[in-house]
């Protein structure tokens, strides 16, 4: 369980690093193009990843309870 969390955090970090880097190097990079719509995209994707991680952890908790109850 902890391993999965670490992997997920690692990927989220990578994603953030890439977007920040893109801003720094290009100035008018992908995050600033097209009326900053990609900022919204980054927010939505972060929420999506967070929600799925949460749902997966609830799923695992229920699975553990089911195993205990058997």
């Amino acid at each position: 369980m902890n391993k999965l969390k670490i992997i997920a955090l690692f990927f989220m970090n990578c994603f953030l690093c890439i977007t920040v880097k893109a801003q720094e190097t290009a100035g008018e990079g992908v995050m600033r193009s097209n009326g900053k719509i990609f900022v919204v995209m980054a927010v939505v994707v972060t929420i999506l990843i967070g929600l799925f991680l949460y749902l997966a952890s609830v799923d695992r908790k229920i699975t553990r309870l089911e195993k205990e109850n058997k």
């Binding site: 719509i37 990609f38 919204v40 995209m41 939505v44 994707v45 999506l48 799925f52 997966a56 799923d59």
Partner: peptide, 18 residues
Amino acid sequence: WKILSFLLLLYTCTYGFY
């Protein structure tokens, strides 16, 4: 199918803006 759901929504929430 849970992973499929995540991948489809990731696709929706990125390519959907693009």
